[in-house]
Amino acid sequence: MANDLRLGLNLGYWQRDATDATELVQTAERLGYDSVWTAEAYGSDAFTPLAWYGARTSRIKLGTSVVQLSARTPAATAMTAMTLDHLTGGRLLLGIGASGPQVVEGWYGQPFPQPLARTREYVEIMRKIWRRAEPVTSDGPHYPLPYPGGANLGKPLKLITHPLRPDIPIYLGAEGPKNVALSAEIAQGWLPLFVFPEKIESMYGASLEHAAPSFDIAAMVLVIVTDDLRAALDGVKMMLTLYIGGMGSKSRNFHADIIGRMGYAEAAEHIQALYLAGRRDEAFHAIPDELADGISLLGPLPRIRERLDLWRKSPVTNLLIMGPHDEPTLTGIRDLVLG
Rank of each mutant, 00 (worst) to 15 (best):
R6N: 08
G12M: 12
R16Y: 08
A18S: 13
D20Y: 09
D20K: 12
E23Y: 07
E23V: 12
E29D: 01
S35P: 12
E40H: 13
A41S: 14
F47R: 08
R56K: 15
V67P: 09
Q68E: 10
L69S: 05
A71C: 08
P74F: 09
P74Y: 09
A78I: 02
H86F: 13
T88H: 10
G90K: 00
P101I: 06
V103R: 05
W107D: 09
W107K: 10
G109C: 06
P111W: 04
P113M: 13
Q114W: 07
P115H: 13
L116A: 11
R120W: 04
I129F: 06
R132N: 05
A133D: 15
E134D: 13
E134Y: 07
T137Q: 09
P144R: 12
Y147C: 06
P148C: 01
G154Q: 15
P156N: 04
L157M: 14
T161A: 14
H162R: 14
R165M: 08
D167M: 08
L172A: 10
G173H: 08
S183D: 00
A187R: 01
Q188Y: 02
Q188P: 00
W190N: 02
L191P: 11
P192V: 07
L193T: 11
P197Q: 06
E198L: 11
K199A: 11
I200W: 12
A211R: 04
A212M: 01
D216T: 04
A218H: 04
V221A: 06
V225L: 03
V236N: 06
Y243K: 13
I244K: 07
G245N: 02
M247K: 07
G248K: 03
S251I: 10
R252D: 15
N253V: 10
H255E: 06
H255S: 11
G263Q: 09
Q272R: 15
L274S: 04
L276Y: 05
A277L: 02
H285E: 10
A286Q: 03
L291G: 05
L291W: 11
A292F: 05
G294A: 10
I304Q: 04
R305M: 00
R307N: 12
D309E: 15
L310R: 12
W311K: 03
R312N: 00
R312V: 01
H325W: 14
E327W: 03
L330M: 04
L336F: 03
L336S: 02
V337H: 02
L338V: 07
L338E: 09
